[in-house]
Structures are given as C-alpha cells and as structure tokens.
C-alpha cells in the first residue's frame, strides 16, 4: 500500500524559516537586554545590597554569637528544648566540617527569598481570593512557574542580568512563591461564611473584614504556605549555585563533577539539616498561633 508522504512525515517548518524565527526572537531579546539590562539590574540593587550585607553579617559575626542567636530563635519559634539541642549539635557538626561559611550564605539567601516571597505572595493571594477572575488568571501562571524547568526561564534571566546572586534569587522565588500564593488564597476562601456575614452585618468595610476576620482566620493556612515556600527554596539551592549563587550548593555541584562522595554527602547533609530545622520551627510556630487564637475547650 502506498501511503501519501504528508501522512508519514509531518509537514514541518523549513530549516531556513526556523533559523530566521530563532534569529528574530533571539535578536529582539538581545536588543531588549542591551537597552534595558542595566536599568533592570539597578532595579534589583536594593535587594542585592540587603542580601550581600546579611551574608556578610552572618559570616563575619563570631560563630558562637550567631549560633546563640539562632538557638534563641529556634527555641522561641518551637518551644522545644529537644529541637534546640539537636540544632546545636547540627551547627557544631557543620562548623567542624568546615561548612560554616557556605551554610551562612545559604541561610541568608533562603531568608531573603522567603521574605520576598511572603511580601509578594500574600498580597497576590489576597487579590486572588477576592476575585474569581484574578484567580483564573493567576492559577495557570503558578502552574507554569512550578512545572517549567528552571533552566528555561534562567536563560533570559542570565541574558539580562548575567550570572550572580540576583538571577539565582529570581530562580528561587519563581519556584518557591506559588505555595505562598495558593495557600493565602485558600486560607482566605475557607473563612467561615457566617463569620464573614456577621462582620458585614455590623458594618465592617473591606479593610476591616480583611484585617479583623480574613487574615487572622487564614493565618494557620498562610503559615503552611510559608513552610512550603522555605522547603522549596532550599530545594533550589543546588540549581541556583549553577548560576553563581554561593552557598552549600556549590560544593555539591563540585562534588558531582569530580565524584567527591564525602564532600557531596556532607554538604547534602547540611542542606537536609537546615531544611529540618526550618520546617520544624515554622510548623510548630504556626500550630501554636492556631491554638492560642482558637483557644481550646476546657
């Protein structure tokens, strides 16, 4: 039997056309990056300044003081003496194996990313919860942000800003902010309708409803979002190190290319330890917030 050719071979774009297409898009973006690269870079200067100085502060302060401060924060957040002691052991282990500086770099970039994700994510989540139209526009974008391989959106970012901390920071935020937005939206939407109606019946305006009812009642869910954001930011540490972010990711990268098993394991272990500490502290802090707010039947 003779099958027509157009059924066996897809009538694809010609090579010449494809080249021209590539050239146009690449050229246009290159032009855009030449024209606006500097101003976009300077837009991020405040963030960079903050990040650099936080890193310096953590690295240059004597380690016993830093550890003391961390342990106080961990105890305040979790109220767990076991977690605090465990964290102390982990910090001593990290420092003993020479990973202190890298760990401080990672902590500072995770800290800044989390703060930015909270600062951007909560307002977006609030807007989303208030309007189904905004929601249906934002949700697909969040889906793309979470599924698009990081390298793909890193290409234009690196073309624009070069390699360094800011592109790394953007890559981490793009990956880590969706749960913050989603869970803020969910938390506000789940607020009991009758409680909200009560606020309406007593004449509360939009802001009063938001700050007295919706946000306080959504807080436990929002805290779950913060927890998720921190975890996802940590997961991006290695990828960020590929575009020049210092921290625990870089030795891991080095270990992969040179097959340094011990080095890889140790740094991987440090990332895991950080993740566990961040997770436990933020979770138990969120839980305590909930208990205290809701009270419990006696």
């Amino acid at each position: 039997m003779n099958i027509p050719e157009f059924l066996t071979v897809f009538p694809k774009m010609g090579k010449v056309d494809y080249l021209a297409f590539k050239k146009t898009v690449d050229g246009a973006f290159r032009q855009f990056s030449r024209a606006y690269g500097d101003s976009i870079e300077s837009f991020f200067d405040p963030v960079l300044f903050f990040l650099v100085n936080l890193e310096k502060l953590l690295q240059n302060t004597p380690w016993p003081i830093v550890i003391m401060v961390f342990l106080l924060l961990i105890y305040y957040g979790s109220r767990s003496i076991y977690l605090t002691i465990g964290s102390l052991a982990a910090f001593l282990f990290i420092a003993y194996f020479g990973m202190w500086q890298d760990t401080m770099s990672t902590v500072s970039i995770i800290g800044v990313c989390t703060l930015l994700a909270i600062g951007l994510g909560i307002p977006i989540g609030i807007l989303m919860s208030g309007s189904d139209r905004v929601r249906s526009a934002v949700v697909p974008i969040l889906d793309i942000m979470q599924t698009m391989p990081s390298f793909v959106y890193l290409i234009p970012v690196v073309m624009l800003l070069g390699i360094g901390k800011i592109p790394g920071l953007l890559a981490i935020i793009v990956y880590a902010i969706p749960p913050m937005i989603r869970l803020t939206d969910l938390g506000i939407r789940e607020v009991d309708k009758e409680v909200l109606e009560a606020a309406d019946a007593f004449g509360a305006n939009r802001m009063q409803k938001l700050f007295r009812v919706q946000l306080p009642l959504a807080l436990p869910t929002i805290f779950a979002g913060i927890n998720q954001t921190i975890m996802m930011a940590l997961a991006m540490v290695v990828i960020a190190s590929m575009i020049g972010v210092r921290g625990l990711g870089q030795p891991v990268l080095k270990a992969i290319s040179n097959q340094y098993l011990t080095m890889g394991l140790l740094n991987g272990f440090a990332i895991v330890v950080l993740a566990v500490i961040f997770d436990r502290v933020s979770q138990s802090f969120g839980k305590r917030l909930q208990q205290h707010r809701a009270g419990s039947r006696e």
Binding site: E194, V195, E197, A198, G203, N205, R293, A294, G295
Partner: peptide
C-alpha cells in the same frame, strides 16, 4: 449602608457567627 448597619441594626445568627480568634 455601612453607617446604617453600624448604628441602626444588630443581627444574631443561627450558628452564632462569632469570631473564633477573639475572646
């Protein structure tokens, strides 16, 4: 309308509608 609700009417709900996070 907000003013009317604030000063002229009070409402009591079937499932109370109290704020669980406030005393």
């Amino acid at each position: 309308l907000l003013d009317f609700r604030r000063t002229r009417t009070g409402m009591v709900f079937q499932r109370f509608g109290l704020f669980p996070h406030q005393n």
